[in-house]
Structure formats: structure tokens, C-alpha cells
Computed example of a mutant assay.
Amino acid sequence: MKKTLFILITILVSIAMYGCSSNGDSEDTGDEDKPTLSFGVTNWTSTIPPTKIASKILEDMGYKVKETNADAGSVYTGLANGDLDIFMDSWYPAQRQYIEKYSDSIESISVSYDDANSGMVVPKYMEDINDVADLKGNEDIVNNEMFAIGAGDPAMQDMKKVIDFYNLDIEMTNSSEAAMLAAAEGKMEEEEPVLFYGWRPHSMFDKYDLKILSNKKATAEKGLFDKSTIHIIANKGLEEKAPKAYKFLSNWSISMEDMEEMIAKIDNGKDPDDVTQAWIDNHQDKIDKMKNGK
């Protein structure tokens, strides 16, 4: 009888200890206990591949995932107030003001790639225009106009500073990315001079022979449009909310070459889910390292 009672007590204690252990780490109890993770998604082509890839991997890890489409300002606001958890396409220093503004509630948890670039773009057949300073006195060759993305984008605020820094007689025509590219493409199809905003990674560099103008003086003196690093930004509550997801994203990295290849395929009509799944299928070793630590 005593032996039977001892066995029963041992079993009950073991169950109690297992219950306490399970409640202490909900992510180990099963997929149903894992939280839903919300991604902020801008309409930039560079946001789609990393968001899709990370979402698929996190779903495979047992998380539910949802995406919220918004402009950059709204994405950062959502991250700051906790409505969003993750943003896969934060450009630094172009978007530094958001990171600084919300530094109490958001954080950079990894660098996706560090060789991105952005700025004024012209076709390579404009052989005499290679630096922003070359536009001074030659603004009329582009009809004193620069096609650009939405005026509310942080990069456009810095672009206005560049124009003012060189005292260029140029007005920005702001619109969506698609409208900007359509206007620029119309000019390039006729091999006319054109000035517009561009960045890498982007399929525009796969489709056309383009160059980002160097910006030596303004970069040296003001730090405007220096090379960019692309960060993964998260709400500071993510580590506590989803520690395994946080660990995975903390080890995240992807090459700009892979990014441009995927963007080009998507722009050419391939399904983003198929394109990003192919990347996942071909990079399982890399993904395992990101999940488990480098």
C-alpha cells in the first residue's frame, strides 16, 4: 500500500512540475499557444521578398502571421504602439528619424544587408552626368524635373535637402513608385534625358542601364544619401512575446543579389509566393542557422 501511494505521489508531482514548466514557456507547449505576429508592409518592391520569406518560415515554426499594408510612417507608428510586431525593410540612415523618434518602443534586431544604395538616378546614356553636382547649370536637360516617390517618405525629405544643398533649379514630382517608374520609363524608351529617384535592390537596374549619381559633397558634409543598411525593426515587446521568432529574426540576413533576383522575377509576373518559396527551398542550411543561431 505504501509503495503504491509513493508511486501515485511521484506521478502527481511529475505532472505538476510539467505543468509549471509548460506555463513558464508557452512556445514549447504546441503551435496553438504561439502568438500571431503582425508584419508592417510598405508598397516598396524591396519589402515583399523578405516579408514573404520570414512569414513562411515563422508559419512553419508554428506562428500565425498577418500582414498590414501601410506607408512607412504608419508602419513605424504601428510598431511603436504595438499594433505591429515586425518590419523587414527599414532603411538607415534614410529612415533614421522614425527610429530615433520611437526609440523607446522599437529596436533594430538585425541587419538584412548592408550594401544598399539610393539617390538620384539617370540612364547611363547621360554620359556627362555622373555626380549630383554635374546637374548644376544643366537642369534644363531634364526639364527641371525629378520624378520621385511619395512626398511623405523620409528619403524625399533628404532628397529635398540635396537639391537645396546644390542649389539646383529642380522640382520634384512626387507620386507612387509605379507612377514614378512609368514616367521615367516613358522617357527612357525614347532615350531622352530623365532624372528620378532610385534605389538598390530594385528590378529597375535589371531592366535598364542605370546609374545612381554619386553625391560626394553632400555626403561628406551632410551625410545625405550615403550607402544604406537595411534593418529588421521590431516592437521591443517581441522578444518576450515570441522569443523563438525573435531569435530567428535576430540572426536574419539575405544578400542584395538574391533580393534583386527575386524582385525582378516578381516584377516579370511570377507569383511572389512561388519566388520566395524557391529561395527557402534552396537555402535550408542558411535558414537552420538563422533559427538556431549563427
Rank of each mutant, 00 (worst) to 15 (best):
Leu5Asp: 06
Ile7Arg: 05
Leu8Ser: 11
Leu8Ala: 09
Thr10His: 08
Leu12Val: 13
Cys20Ser: 08
Asn23Pro: 03
Ser26Gly: 05
Asp33Gly: 07
Lys34Arg: 15
Leu37Trp: 12
Val41Met: 12
Thr42Val: 10
Thr42Tyr: 03
Ile48Glu: 02
Ile48Arg: 00
Pro50Thr: 04
Met61Gly: 06
Lys66Tyr: 11
Thr68Val: 10
Ala72Phe: 06
Thr77Asp: 08
Ala80Leu: 07
Asp83Arg: 09
Leu84Gly: 03
Met88Cys: 09
Trp91Leu: 05
Tyr92Gln: 14
Arg96His: 12
Lys101Ile: 08
Tyr102Ile: 02
Glu107Trp: 10
Tyr113His: 04
Ser118His: 02
Gly119Glu: 13
Met120Gly: 03
Pro123Ala: 07
Lys124Asp: 11
Asn130Gln: 08
Ala133Leu: 10
Asp134Ile: 07
Ile141Trp: 00
Val142Thr: 04
Met146Gln: 14
Phe147Gly: 02
Ala148Val: 09
Ala151Ile: 14
Ala151Asn: 12
Pro154Trp: 03
Asp164Arg: 11
Tyr166Val: 01
Tyr166Met: 02
Tyr166Gly: 00
Leu168Pro: 00
Ser175Gly: 12
Met180Ala: 07
Ala182Asp: 13
Ala182Ser: 11
Ala184Val: 00
Ala184Thr: 01
Glu185Phe: 14
Glu185Ala: 09
Glu191Ser: 14
Val194Glu: 05
Leu195Trp: 03
Leu195Ile: 03
Tyr208Phe: 14
Ile212Met: 11
Asn215Lys: 04
Ala220Thr: 15
Gly223Glu: 02
Gly223Ile: 00
Lys227Asn: 14
Thr229Cys: 07
Ala234Tyr: 01
Asn235Thr: 07
Lys236Asp: 02
Glu239His: 12
Lys247Pro: 09
Ser250Pro: 00
Trp252Cys: 00
Met256Thr: 10
Asp258Gly: 04
Met262Phe: 12
Ala264Trp: 15
Lys265His: 05
Asp267Trp: 05
Asp267Ser: 11
Asp267Phe: 08
Asp271Lys: 15
Asp274Ala: 15
Ile280Asp: 02
His283Tyr: 12
Gln284Ala: 04
Lys286Asn: 05
Lys286Gly: 02
Lys289Leu: 06
Gly293Ala: 10
Lys294Ile: 13
